[in-house]
Structures are given as structure tokens and as C-alpha cells.
Amino acid sequence: MIIPVRCFSCGKVIGDKWEEFARRVAAGENPAAVLDDLGVTRYCCRRMLLSHVNLIDEVLRLYEERDRSTFKEG
């Protein structure tokens, strides 16, 4: 749904690294290099960011589109 605050296995805070990670990977950088750069060294923490899908963005679209749509109920 949304990036977990901490790594499930070791408890390192990884939530604050998600936005930079997602932005840089989307810009074409190598995910491994970005993770090294962010100081995420253990594989338990690396999989947290690598395998994350930020579904909350998809959910929020329902609310955003509803407000913008010209379709009226009834």
C-alpha cells in the first residue's frame, strides 16, 4: 500500500528513502547503485525498497478523479 516505515527483518528506517529511490530509478539509474548510495546495505532492507509497489497512489486516483469528473450522480 504505502512504503513501510521500517525494514521488516532488522528494523532500519527505510520509509524516508522511498521517494528518492523511486524518483532516481524512474529516471533510469541502476537500482543497486541507488541503494548503495542511500546507505541501504543489507539485503533485508534492499528488498523492502526493490519489491515495493506504491499502491496508495492508485487508490488515491479514485478520489482525485471523482472530484474532477463532470459526471453527476442521479
Binding site: I3, V13, G15, D16, E19, I56, D57, L60, E64, D67
Partner: peptide, 30 residues
């Protein structure tokens, strides 16, 4: 839409604050 971060928390003691202000708590739609 905007993200609510740990940095949005207002503490009564300036010494006790989140270690990082960029931890997302939730994302809010308009």
C-alpha cells in the same frame, strides 16, 4: 494530493523529534 511526513509532527519538546522528517505516514487525497 499530499503526503503526510514525520516532519509534520509538532513536538512539545524540540529535543524529542523524529530522526528523519521524510518518513511518509500516509498520503491524502484532496
Amino acid at each position: 494530493s499530499r503526503t503526510v511526513y514525520s516532519g509534520d509532527l509538532v513536538s512539545e519538546d524540540p529535543a524529542v523529534v523524529p530522526v528523519s522528517p521524510k518518513i511518509p505516514i500516509v498520503k491524502l487525497a484532496p
